[in-house]
């Protein structure tokens, strides 16, 4: 809130006309934000035990006021009652008419709804049949696949067993370990090899002279 600086008429007479304008002269602005005590301030100590005096209304005035008030209330009550009766009678007629038309409407809506339901039921039956068929197909397909998988697995296992049985004669067990150790110590193995651009393989760890002659294998 802002208000213009107040000054007497005589002072204002001597000042130029613009000087009291807040917009033209911001210097004249005064903030009047806190004119009263802030809302949180407690009751003053001096007013703590003060008992405010009861309003003194003369007897005649009281009787007159009571008469006026009662009169006013009676009038208002009668007007309100009249209006209520008016509204209720009008609404009752309308409601009756509405109820009849609503029943007709409901029957019509139900007919349309039943028709739609029948249409959708046909479509649904067809769809469910189709889905059932698909599901059965899928199940039978999966069963078939599973059978094939099982058969392949058994074949694989059989093949593994067969190969292992073939290898059985080369197993080193506690019976022929002496012989195997002798063989191993006699013939040392060297896994290292080199390969050239032509695809010749040169076995052995150390490079030797005349490699061309030493080529053992060709890729």
């Amino acid at each position: 809130m802002l208000r213009q600086l107040q000054c007497s008429a005589s002072v204002r007479f001597f000042l130029p006309p613009d000087i009291m304008n807040v917009v033209a002269n911001p210097v004249c602005k005064q903030s009047v934000r806190w004119r009263r005590k802030p809302p949180g301030t407690p009751l003053a100590k001096s007013k703590l035990f003060r008992i405010p005096p009861r309003p003194q209304v003369p007897e005649e005035e009281r009787i007159e006021l009571f008469r006026l008030t009662t009169n006013y209330n009676t009038f208002i009550k009668s007007v309100r009652e009249f209006l209520r009766e008016e509204v209720q009678s009008a609404a009752g007629k309308e409601q009756l008419a509405d109820a009849v038309s609503m029943d007709d409407d409901l029957i019509r809506c139900k007919e349309i709804n039943d028709k739609w339901n029948a249409e959708v039921a046909l479509i649904r039956e067809k769809r469910l049949l189709h889905e059932k068929e698909e599901k059965l197909n899928l199940i039978s397909k999966r069963l078939e696949e599973r059978k094939i998988r099982e058969r392949n697995r058994v074949a694989e296992i059989n093949e593994l067993v067969r190969m292992e049985k073939e290898k059985e004669k080369y197993y080193i067990t506690s019976e022929n370990i002496d012989e195997a150790i002798e063989n191993a110590l006699r013939g040392e193995v060297d896994y290292n090899f080199a390969i050239d651009v032509k695809g010749n393989i040169y076995k052995g760890e150390v490079a030797e002279e005349n490699l061309e002659k030493k080529a053992v294998e060709t890729v």
């Binding site: 197993y171 080193i172 506690s174 191993a184 040392e188 193995v189 060297d190």
Partner: peptide
């Protein structure tokens, strides 16, 4: 080799690299 055999195993290959 005996330790391997004791565990119920078999040896497939025994190579000496020198």
């Amino acid at each position: 080799a005996g330790i391997i055999f004791d565990q119920g195993g078999i040896i497939r290959r025994l190579d000496s690299l020198g």
